[in-house]
């Protein structure tokens, strides 16, 4: 009897310890070169968009043999700013990359934390996707022009559903409003916790319009349950039968970009090495497959080009957030 109990206890302990070990693939260890061991920090919970992006890169790096050992760790919280402040504290670590993207700029401006993306070492921008403005199938509006006309007359009565405050969806609603002559703070924006909830609000005809990533609404648009009025890409995308905002005469474009940054204070050759690793990843067939599967647009950028992009985006987002009255 006693033996059996001990074996049960040992069994339970083993499961627990193994699970814990699997969960917390520890970030500790020596600062070996990034080629032998690379840690990718996803500043989001397992399953989120950034987590998926990090794990795709991990798989690509491993399979193509670019890096011997790549790990993903999750540091979720506050739109990625918890992860950001951790990364900034890892001054000089040259075997560490963090997933970043458009959302983090908004979140770090919003949360008023002292650390910002400017404190990190930019490495690369890899993939973009774009947001669509949709209306429910029962909506009276068939084109962007019709919607804008009604919206200008009564901004309050045309609520727009989208992701959390400071998200790409929110910023886009403000930008659209400003461009068509509605004060961003007068836009009646209803925040939901994600694309799924925005979809629910469209299906129940709660809000007049909704904004989310095109991929999340693609099938609903094809099936006709939602009508897409405009997309935020600079030009028409292949296989996406949705007019851009620019085509409809509204000069707005915005991308939900994703990329990588490294901790501050790393040596120039360490930075070049990381840029080389990501560049090699970008050239693999695995990555091409990743882009295709996720329906992401290739937006590869490194070096000065990416630095300049980051700076420009930060200014634009900070201005918008101020105008939105957050």
């Amino acid at each position: 009897m006693k033996k059996r109990i001990i074996s049960i206890v040992v069994g339970v302990l083993t499961i627990g310890v193994f699970t814990a070990a699997a969960m917390d693939a520890s970030a500790s260890g020596s600062t070996a070169s990034a080629r032998s061991k690379l840690t990718i920090m996803a500043p989001a919970a397992p399953g989120g968009g950034w987590d998926g992006f990090g794990r795709e890169a991990q798989q690509g790096l491993r399979r193509a043999g670019i890096v011997n050992n790549a790990q993903v760790i999750n540091v979720p919280g506050a739109g990625g700013t918890i992860g950001l402040s951790k990364l900034v504290q890892m001054d000089g670590r040259d075997d560490m990359l963090m997933v970043t993207g458009a959302v983090m700029i908004g979140a770090s401006v919003l949360s008023k934390t002292s650390e910002s993306l400017a404190d990190t070492t930019p490495i690369a921008r890899l993939a973009d996707d774009y947001s669509v403005l949709v209306v429910p199938a029962a909506s009276p509006y068939n084109t962007m022009a019709e919607f804008v006309e009604a919206w200008q007359k009564a901004p309050g009565a045309h609520s727009i559903a989208g992701g959390s405050l400071g998200s790409i969806d929110h910023l886009l609603s403000g930008l659209l409003g400003r461009t068509v002559g509605i004060t961003p703070s007068a836009v009646n924006y209803v925040a939901y916790s994600g694309g799924g909830e925005v979809l629910a609000s469209m299906l129940s005809n709660t809000a007049a319009a909704g904004i989310s990533g095109y991929n999340e609404f693609r099938d609903q648009i094809e099936a006709g349950t939602l009508r897409a009025l405009g997309i935020s890409s600079p030009e028409r995308l292949d296989g996406v039968p949705v007019p851009t905002f620019i085509e409809s005469g509204i000069d707005v474009q915005m991308s939900n970009w994703r990329g990588y940054v490294a901790p501050p204070g790393i040596a120039d050759d360490a930075r070049d090495e990381m840029v080389a690793i990501i560049t090699e990843l970008h050239q693999t067939d695995e990555w091409a497959d990743t882009l295709r599967r996720n329906n992401w647009t290739d937006s590869f950028q490194v070096g000065d080009e990416f630095d300049a992009f980051l700076e420009e985006e930060t200014t634009r987002v900070s201005d918008l957030i101020r105008e939105l009255g957050l």
Binding site: G77, S85, L110
Partner: peptide
Amino acid sequence: GPSGAARFTLGLPQLFD
């Protein structure tokens, strides 16, 4: 969520979510 105001967070980013 609806207003973006921080409530009872004592200014700690760890409590923002």
